[in-house]
């Protein structure tokens, strides 16, 4: 089950996604968190963020909208309270970093780059729920390249994953920009900005008006985008992809691997089945046994190869 991901040897290719797995101790009641291939924290910002007023979520057909607003304890308290817990994990831990200016991103990464317990960082330049920065970084290729370069310099020897926004005209353009800036890996996709209206009150259900759509509803789009970036950018640049968006079974995960992902992350599905990610590891093992696949890497980008 082990895979190589941006120079790291991971026990398996299954991660939990940023913002959907707390700070790890919340999941410990339900599964062995050390059985995960990787773990990505909620977005951390330089200063604490309270987040948006509620309602912050609303369910839709086969998905949900969230507008949490990057609520997090901030860098200082993260280091003091959360890092010691995360440091005990055996899985590869990535800190997801967000901010409103390049300087903020760099400051967070600089502070954490020396932490032995961390495998690397995931750069969130694609959160749809913060007014400044966020999505605007992620949609402008020049800014993607600039921020990636600045953060990569602060990273030291740690792995830098850049998380791509899905709602752009051509995702390969931003993917190329991140690679040019020095990204070691790309993760895709983040959520799509969306809206649900309460027809009785004529108001959006979410206080933030809009929220990010996640869950099974976005899976086919995510698979398509992973495949597009794999074919047009990642294969040639030899950059691994972390695929996510609506994954809730091993079969879903295999689709992402075939499309070109080296690893996958589970987000919304953990809300329904808290141990979903480790169930997917077991399911992948079964699939490989059934298909006589000895190295998972054989699956990556295997779309259109004879079955």
């Amino acid at each position: 089950m082990s895979v190589e991901f941006a120079g790291l040897r991971l026990a398996n290719p299954v991660f939990t996604a940023s913002g959907t797995c707390g700070y790890a101790d919340e999941l410990a009641d339900f599964m062995d968190v050390d059985a995960l291939g990787g773990f990505i924290t909620k977005s951390i910002t330089l200063k604490p963020r309270k987040g948006n007023p509620t309602p912050r979520i609303v369910e839709t057909d086969a998905g949900m909208l969230n507008a949490i607003g990057l609520a997090n304890v901030g860098l200082e308290r993260f280091v003091a309270e959360k890092l010691p817990v995360i440091a005990r994990m055996k899985s590869a831990v990535f800190v997801n970093v967000a901010g409103t200016t390049i300087e903020e991103y760099v400051a967070v990464v600089e502070r954490l780059a020396g932490e032995k317990a961390l495998a690397g960082f995931e750069l969130n330049i694609s959160c749809p729920n913060v007014k400044k920065g966020g999505i605007s970084f992620g949609t402008d290729p020049a800014q993607v390249e600039e921020i990636t370069r600045a953060v990569k310099k602060a990273c030291g020897s740690k792995v830098l994953i850049v998380k791509l926004a899905p709602a752009v005209t051509d995702i390969s353009v931003t993917a190329r920009a991140a690679v040019a800036g020095g990204a070691d890996a790309l993760s895709l996709i983040n959520t799509f900005t969306a809206m649900v209206i309460d027809i009785e009150t004529r108001r959006p259900v979410l206080t933030n008006r809009t929220g990010g759509l996640s869950g099974p509803a976005i899976k086919p789009i995510a698979v398509y985008l992973v495949n597009k970036v794999y074919r047009e950018v990642a294969r040639e640049a030899r950059i691994p992809l972390l695929g996510l968006g609506g994954i809730r079974s091993a079969a879903d995960a295999v689709e992402f691997l075939m499309a070109g992902a080296t690893a996958v992350a589970v987000g919304t599905a953990s809300f329904v089945e808290p141990d979903c990610a480790v169930q997917i590891v077991a399911g992948l093992r079964d699939y490989c046994a059934r298909k006589k696949i000895t190295r998972l890497a054989e699956l990556t980008g295997s779309l259109d190869r004879p079955a």
Binding site: T20, C21, G22, I57, I68, S270
Partner: peptide
């Protein structure tokens, strides 16, 4: 969404 502290929706 989760009921167990994962999502911060509540």
């Amino acid at each position: 969404a989760c009921g167990i502290g994962l999502c911060q929706s509540c």
